[in-house]
Amino acid sequence: MKKTIKKLDNNVVKALTLACETAKDWEIGFQWLTHTARYEQFPGSLMVTCVFEHDEDVRRLTIEENDTKLRQLIQQHLLKVGIKVKDICRHVCFDSEESCEREHSGDWQKRLIHC
């Protein structure tokens, strides 16, 4: 990995770690998050996956409008490290441990390829 790409990835990790720690305190079923990116097409290729414990947590997220709040949190932290995405809705998806277990036998690497 080139030095500039490594630095960029470190900034993404830093921003997402801060967002993750904040979201864990919200008591909405949020567990963790991860990201994927093709840095030759960055930031357009950035995809953040927010993982919840149950499918019901993901369904409730939208009803209670916490999806917007969580996306804004992620976007704010990305902006703090100089990363601007055009439409945060296209860069953040929501998933659950329950769905991964049911559909991919808990294999997150396999599942994230399709997110």
Score class of each variant (00 low, 15 high):
D87Y: 06
K110S: 09
F42N: 01
E64C: 11
Q72W: 05
C89K: 14
V12L: 07
C93T: 15
E40G: 05
L79D: 06
W26F: 06
K110Q: 09
H91V: 02
K86Q: 01
R60I: 05
E40S: 14
F30C: 05
C20K: 07
T36N: 08
R111W: 04
W26Y: 15
I74N: 03
S105A: 08
G44M: 03
L46K: 00
R71E: 11
I113A: 10
M1W: 05
K2Q: 10
G29F: 04
E64T: 12
T49K: 10
Q109E: 05
R102F: 09
K80P: 01
T34E: 01
L112W: 02
D67Y: 06
D55Y: 12
G44A: 05
T62A: 09
S96H: 09
I63E: 02
R38S: 02
D9V: 06
A19K: 12
S105T: 02
A19P: 15
A19C: 08
V48K: 00
C115K: 14
L61R: 09
K7E: 11
W26L: 15
S99Y: 10
M47V: 10
C100F: 05
C50E: 11
R90C: 07
L61T: 01
F52P: 06
H54R: 15
M1Y: 00
I88W: 01
G44F: 04
T62I: 01
L73I: 11
S45L: 04
G29N: 06
C100T: 09
L61C: 07
D95T: 05
F42T: 02
L18Q: 12
G29E: 10
I5E: 15
R102P: 03
V92Q: 09
E53H: 15
D67R: 10
K2C: 07
T62D: 07
Q72N: 15
H91E: 10
Q109P: 02
Q76A: 14
V48E: 00
L78H: 11
C89D: 07
Q109C: 03
E98Q: 14
L33Y: 00
C50M: 15
A37S: 08
D57G: 06
R59E: 06
D9P: 01
V92P: 13
F94L: 15
K110M: 05
I5Q: 11
T68D: 13
R102W: 02
H35C: 03
M1L: 04
T62Y: 09
E101K: 12
A19Q: 13
N10S: 14
E27N: 11
L112E: 02
V58I: 03
T4Q: 15
Q109R: 03
I63C: 00
F52N: 04
V81L: 11
Q31W: 03
I113R: 07
L61N: 10
D55Q: 08
H35K: 02
S45I: 00
F94C: 14
E103K: 10
G106A: 13
N11F: 01
R60Y: 07
C20W: 01
L16G: 03
K24P: 01
L33W: 03
E27C: 10
V48R: 03
L16W: 01
L18I: 14
L33V: 00
V48G: 00
A23K: 12
